[in-house]
Design a protein around this nucleic acid. Structure first.
Lengths: 208, 208
DNA sequence: ACCTGAGCCAAATTCAATTCAGTTTGGATG
DNA sequence: CATCCAAACTGAATTGAATTTGGCTCAGGT
């Protein structure tokens, strides 16, 4: 059972798919998924409500797509950031820094992702929704493995004390993403400051 | 602006309020809030769907009530656990242990709480919903203060190195509650094991 | 015997999401 | 150029879960 990376629909030159996703990220991220009317997204894009169904099977299908894309990005970024860093502690630091090196748009996407992680547990009724859900689920596991492997490497190499890498990996990841629940770009604390504190915290958690 | 602790409705002898809350916790916790039909909760309790409105203004009002009750419990438990522990490190350990000393029912409530924390940001339309929301919001801040104060105490006492206590408090709390997103009583890892790992992680995060 | 309010229900209503039954449009094809 | 066709779109129903409406019932107090 190979991980099947979903093929992004062809970018037809007149397609408003990207515009819809962008508008949806804004709405879902600021107003909340349940609270935003699907028709409002249509308005923002400048099309009728029913035109949305040309691109997405449902409001939830759109949400799941946003979540999958963000997970894909997270995984890719982790991989890129740690690729050529040999020292486990430095790799950990690089991974954490990469996790907080995001645009305002991506902050919203992370918020959406965190707020609806529970959608990924149960199965969905319609085909395409279920496809996105399974893909997202798989990416979650990939990302968890990313962090766990980093710890395993560090432990076997003697850089980190031996502990349950699975559990510790999930915890580190949980700590990192917990920020997206409260962080606001407009808030008093700059993301860089948050990142630095968390980076230190992660290292101490793992490496002491 | 004093925190106004909501007065729990009188427990009329025929009242099914508690039964509804219990059923709702089961449904919302296992199936998810959005996915469970309000009428299903009614069935479980053995009353008609519209009878629910005698006790709660809306499905969301019930959810907010569950969240508030759980927050109240968390705060009370923290207070009790740390009350007579002078040493900051030991107090921290006690607080973490208390956080994971929960029944299966309470696990569900914590899951519900975490999955819908975002409801607390925006205002609600109806009176009683908004009252619960504000109360819950206030309790969140109380709990955050609980943890932050613990850290401040430890820092000023020289037990913990000086760091941004606000931020670190939020992070510790974030780490602790992140467990409720994935933990299942039926899962392979016993909660005691999780608690021990997190306890150690928190101490290292804060005290190193 | 009567009154009152908590507790309850069946039927009607609402409103956002979704489906239906097509209509437009731009580019490729003959 | 005329034609075709798939992508893109639309206004008018439909659906379904949450909620509102308008009463009914029963237990305890007077």
């Amino acid at each position: 059972m190979m991980a099947t990376r979903i093929v992004e629909p062809e970018a037809g030159p007149r397609s408003k798919r990207a515009a819809i996703l962008a508008a949806a990220v804004d709405c879902f991220g600021e107003t909340g998924f349940e609270a935003t009317k699907w028709s409002t997204v249509a308005e923002r894009v400048g099309i009728g409500q029913t035109a949305l169904y040309h691109y997405f099977e449902s409001k939830t299908h759109c949400l799941l797509t946003i979540m999958r894309l963000e997970l894909q990005r997270s995984h890719d970024k982790f991989t890129e950031a740690t690729a050529d860093v040999a020292d486990p502690v430095e790799a950990l630091r690089a991974a954490v820094r990469a996790a907080y090196d995001v645009s305002d748009q991506e902050v919203l996407q992370m918020r959406i992702l965190q707020n609806h992680m529970d959608l990924l547990s149960g199965p969905r009724k319609s085909k395409r929704e279920e496809a996105e859900r399974v893909a997202a689920r798989q990416l979650v596991q990939l990302v968890e493995r990313d962090w766990t492997n980093l710890l395993v490497r560090g432990m076997s190499q003697g850089a980190f004390p031996l502990r349950d890498a699975q559990l510790l990996g999930a915890s580190v990841l949980g700590l990192i993403v917990s920020v997206w629940r409260w962080y606001r770009p407009s808030g008093p604390t700059p993301l860089s400051e948050v990142g630095e504190l968390i980076e230190g915290a992660c290292v101490r958690m793992v490496a002491t």
